[in-house]
Simulated assay, not measured.
Amino acid sequence: MSIPNVITLIRILLVPVIVWAIASNEMEIAFAVFVIAGISDAVDGFLAKRFNMASELGAMLDPLADKALLVSIYVALGIWGAVPRWIVILVVSRDIMIVGAVIVSWVLGKPVPMKPLMVSKLNTVAQVTFAAVVLAALAFGFAWEPYDLILMGIVAVLTLLSVSLYLVEWTRHMGTGERGH
């Protein structure tokens, strides 16, 4: 168990803390823990790359931690009423579709290579930024209209574009005659 993997596991354990904080209207705590989770993501990635500590387990745990964190925050903020439910449904549905497609490809013996698309990386940045700004606005009581609508629109467009491109890639992959390794 490498140090980056331990840090990633700690990030996963922070998810229920953030959800509890949001549900308890402890937005300062939710924001602080979100920032800690974000820093831990950068630190584990830096350590894995810089000190050659990357592992197969880490390659699976890191995106799982990111998805668990973002999906949980969006669901909690949606239930709390801080973000519209349609954006929660969009963000969560995208991740469910991607995970479902990966599982189907494994079951059918044609595993999809796990390589994030550039639009997916931009989508993640937009989703994280939107969640961070919503939590900060709730924690520190500032209004950020109309920027909230602009950022939410960017999240929606990038989420739709990302899932569409993944679907195209997955359909292309599944249509080839090659079997997975």
Rank of each mutant, 00 (worst) to 15 (best):
A21S: 08
A23Y: 11
S24N: 12
N25I: 09
E26S: 14
M27H: 14
M27I: 08
A32L: 12
V33F: 04
V33Q: 01
F34S: 12
F34V: 00
V35W: 01
V35M: 06
I36S: 06
I39H: 00
I39R: 01
I39G: 01
V43I: 14
D44S: 08
D44K: 07
G45I: 02
K49A: 15
F51S: 05
N52L: 09
M53Q: 14
A54Q: 15
A54F: 08
G58V: 00
P63Q: 04
L64P: 10
L64D: 11
D66Q: 07
K67H: 03
K67V: 06
A68W: 01
L69F: 01
V71M: 09
S72C: 02
I73C: 04
Y74W: 02
L77Y: 01
L77H: 02
W80H: 11
W80E: 12
G81A: 02
A82V: 00
V83A: 04
P84T: 00
W86L: 03
V88L: 12
V88G: 10
I89G: 11
L90S: 09
V91F: 13
V92A: 12
S93W: 10
R94E: 07
R94G: 04
R94S: 03
D95N: 10
D95T: 05
D95Y: 07
I96C: 11
I98L: 15
A101K: 06
V102P: 07
I103G: 12
I103V: 15
V104A: 14
S105E: 11
W106M: 13
W106G: 00
L108R: 14
L108H: 09
G109Q: 09
V112W: 14
V112T: 15
V112G: 05
P113A: 07
M114W: 01
M114H: 10
K115H: 14
L117F: 11
L117H: 10
S120P: 03
